[in-house]
Structures are given as structure tokens and as C-alpha cells.
């Protein structure tokens, strides 16, 4: 059962049997401390800091909602939002479509499938590392691997993809798509859950491959598609390392890879403008919450629950 189904069913679970308040308290003690000290406390604190001007050295000055107003007048911030949205809404759908296609391909019907699955899955484990980001910077550089390979087929005078504002973001989108292995594994697990008899019945009724995919596979997988969409959206909005390394921490060229998290990092930990960084974090939180909520609401219309 996924996190979301779990959330849905939380309300309906009934308390039965005797209570062990004392034992539970001790078992939950580290987690409770964490919720207070590491999560809830800092969340409240960050809400307060977002209403101040604070550089870590002088004591915070209350300035009301000025940081929030400033955000909407900050062209670099608005640009970073645009970059992040473009990254999220281009790379996540493509990544999931590729993951689903790969899962269909690797589901059954040939030997050595576990081997192929492993190979396809590997990049998703390595993809978030600095090493892979460094590799990307070389591959898509002026004399990088991509241009070398394209040179072999006669294409010369190509741009340095990461140093061209038109293409830099595209290379990072490609990196994210390349890590489709994790959602692919979730899709594979989902495909295993589709009862074989549905396909058999459809075949008897004369449904072709494409029909079976549209009418059986897709609806049966829809809870998993939903789950993957939310996970990947949340992750993609917070994306940081790749843009940081590929652009050398600048978000360049001309702010074309200035992800929201990267701009937040610069404001907080290069400028030490903690108030502004906190306000930015809250805006990010609100954006993610709204998009998650919208996905949840629309799920009623397209997610199909078998039971």
C-alpha cells in the first residue's frame, strides 16, 4: 500500500484493544524529539524568520511581509521559478512515460530480464551524485563526448550545450529523464499486480495489444502512475545538485539553470539573507502543497481503484 492510500485510510481505522500509552511514549521518544526539534520547531521558526531581516550576525529585525512582497518584484526569483517549472513539467512527464515504456518492455517474455532491469535501474542510483553531474558537464561541454560522437557522423561546429543558455537546462532535464529506473521498478511491481485473466478475457473478446494497454494496463496502473507523479514532482521541485555542479554554483549561463533551490541556497548561504531565504522556502512549500493537492483532487477522475 502506498503512502497515499495509507493517508486515505487513516481516518477509517478504529482503535481496539487496550492502550499502551506509556510504552508507546518510550518507543516514539526519539521520533517525537525529532518532530519537535528538527521539524515542527524549525517550521514555526522559519515562518517567523521569513518576517524579519536577519543576517545571522545582527539580531533579526521584524519587517512584516516585506520579504514576500520583495519576492514578487525580484526578476531573478521569478526567473528561477520559470526555470524550475519548465524543468519539472518537462522532465517529470517524459521521465514517467519512458519509465512506463521500459517497464512494459522489461515485464515479461524474454530471458535475462533481471539483468536488463539492473542496467536500466543503475543510473537512478548514481544520478544524484556529484560525480555524475561532473560527467554531464564534460559530456555536454564544447569538446565533450556528445559533440565527439556527433562529430563521428559528420556534425561539426556544434555549441557547448551547457554553456549555451538555450540548451543548458535541456541537458539537466535529460539527466533527470535518464534516472527513470526508480519509477520503472514501481511500474514493474504494479504490472505484476494486474490479473492475467483480464488480459485473457480481453483477448478472447478480440482486443488487440494497444486496446489491452489502453483499457486494462493503464487503468489498473493508474494508482501507481498517480503515486509516481506525486513523488517525482516533489523531488523535482527541490532539485539542486545537478544545476549547482553543472553551472559551477552560478545557475548560469545567464541564469538559465538557476533552479529555485539553487537561488534559495545563494540567498541563504552566500548572501546570508536568512529572512529572504526562509520566505522563499515557504513559497516553495506552498507551491508543492498546491500542486500536490491539485493532483489529489483530479485523481478522483482518472485514478481507478480496483477494490
Amino acid at each position: 500500500m502506498s503512502v497515499f492510500e495509507e493517508l486515505r485510510s487513516v481516518r477509517s481505522s478504529k482503535t481496539t484493544g487496550k492502550r499502551d500509552n506509556k510504552a508507546a511514549f518510550f518507543f516514539l521518544l526519539p521520533w517525537l524529539l525529532g518532530v519537535v526539534l528538527i521539524t515542527a520547531g524549525p517550521m514555526i521558526a522559519s515562518l517567523w524568520i521569513s518576517l524579519t531581516n536577519y543576517n545571522l550576525i545582527q539580531s533579526p529585525q521584524f519587517i512584516g511581509v516585506q520579504n514576500y512582497i520583495r519576492m514578487f518584484q525580484d526578476p531573478r526569483l521569478l526567473n528561477s521559478l520559470r526555470v524550475t517549472f519548465e524543468y519539472v513539467f518537462v522532465s517529470v512527464p517524459i521521465q514517467l512515460i519512458v519509465a512506463l515504456a521500459a517497464a512494459m518492455l522489461l515485464d515479461r517474455g524474454m530471458r535475462a530480464l533481471p539483468f536488463y532491469r539492473s542496467v536500466f535501474y543503475l543510473p537512478s542510483l548514481l544520478g544524484s551524485s556529484v560525480a555524475v553531474a561532473i560527467l554531464w558537464r564534460q559530456i555536454f561541454g564544447q569538446g565533450g563526448l556528445v559533440n565527439q560522437l556527433l562529430g563521428l557522423v559528420g556534425l561539426h561546429n556544434l555549441p557547448g550545450w551547457i554553456s549555451d543558455p538555450q540548451f543548458a537546462l535541456g541537458t539537466i532535464i535529460l539527466l533527470n529523464i535518464w534516472t527513470f529506473g526508480a519509477p520503472m521498478i514501481i511500474f514493474l511491481a504494479g504490472l505484476r499486480q494486474v490479473p492475467e485473466m483480464y488480459y485473457e478475457a480481453a483477448s478472447i473478446d478480440g482486443a488487440g495489444r494497444w486496446m489491452r494497454f489502453l483499457r486494462i494496463t493503464l487503468p489498473m496502473l493508474s494508482p501507481i502512475i498517480f503515486f509516481n507523479i506525486i513523488l517525482q514532482l516533489i523531488g523535482a521541485f527541490q532539485s539542486f545538485t545537478q544545476a549547482f555542479i553543472v553551472s559551477g554554483g552560478t545557475g548560469g549561463p545567464s541564469d538559465s539553470t538557476m533552479f529555485y533551490s539553487l537561488y534559495l541556497y545563494q540567498q541563504g548561504f552566500n548572501q546570508f539573507d536568512m529572512g529572504y531565504a526562509s520566505a522563499m522556502a515557504w513559497l516553495l512549500f506552498i507551491i508543492i502543497a498546491i500542486i500536490t493537492a491539485v493532483t489529489f483532487v483530479t485523481s478522483k477522475y482518472w485514478v481507478f481503484y480496483d477494490n
Binding site: 518532530v35 545571522l56 506525486i230 522556502a281 512549500f285
Partner: peptide, 16 residues
């Protein structure tokens, strides 16, 4: 909390 972006708690945690 599984879905909470870590940036929201980052600054106060750093200060703490």
C-alpha cells in the same frame, strides 16, 4: 513529513 521539502526547515536548523 515524508512529503515536506527540507528547505522549509533548513534555515532555522542551520541557526540552531
Amino acid at each position: 513529513t515524508i512529503m515536506l521539502p527540507f528547505q522549509v526547515t533548513l534555515v532555522p536548523q542551520y541557526i540552531m
